[in-house]
Amino acid sequence: MAEIFGIPVPLLLGQLMLGLMNGAFYAMLSLGLAVIFGLMDEVNFAHGAFFMMGAMFAWMGGQYFHLGFWWMLLLAPLAVGLFGLLVERLMLRRLRGMDPIYGLLLTFGLTLLIEGLFRTFFGVAGSPYNPPALLGGTLNLGFMYLPTYYVFAMAASLAACFGTWFLIERTKLGSYLRAGTENPALVQAFGINFPLLVMLTFAFGSALAGLAGVLAAPIIQVSPLMGSNLIIVVFAIVVIGGMGSVMGAIVSGLALGVIEGLTKVFYAPISSTVVFILMALVLTVRPAGLFGKEK
């Protein structure tokens, strides 16, 4: 077996592959956070709960309404987006102009509430959620066997990421958004309904988390706590990428996934903390993050 630094090549490639896979999820989640933060200066702590809701909805759709994966891939993000929309309209909007800490507290409280509710009804046990039959097989990549679903999930996450990037950086709607990030008052003076824009942005960010949840459901077990296990890492990634930077979120999400995977090969015990070590390093050198702008 060929080796690099004493590590068998198939193992290295395999871990890179899985790292990229995790990275795609990190990217999608941190992207949702970044979009919301960019426009609203709001740290959405409920993002992990939205992710969990996406997965739980997918599972519930199958369990109670016999709706398959493909239906839920469409419906669950819509439902989570709608929920996000209500959260913004009914609660977060009232905190506009106040210290961001209030928004953080509100969304943190929401997380506890949502998770608590799901725990009461479904327990903390994970429920398996099977990938659709079409993607149930396994691919032989030569250096490893990879379940077909993993390839699909990775492709779908990357497509969602770059779709979002395109929407924000290359379309007219995106230009309103970016302008709003710079100077909301001026944008409003040009006759753009800024509160509506904010509301839709929040809904979009939430839907992105919901989509990530549905895509992750067949890979990790669906459980009410799946979001809180992930959200801290995702926050670290957003900080590394630069708060509010779309490209930063995507690039650092993917990169961190890969770095985590490689750490598992070379020194497994720190694989779960390597993200935070990097965050500390980045913050000492570039306090605004890799892609962030100092305000």
Partner: peptide, 9 residues
């Protein structure tokens, strides 16, 4: 998955 890859290798 990542543990299984190590086992395989």
């Amino acid at each position: 998955s990542s543990y299984l890859l190590q086992a395989q290798a």
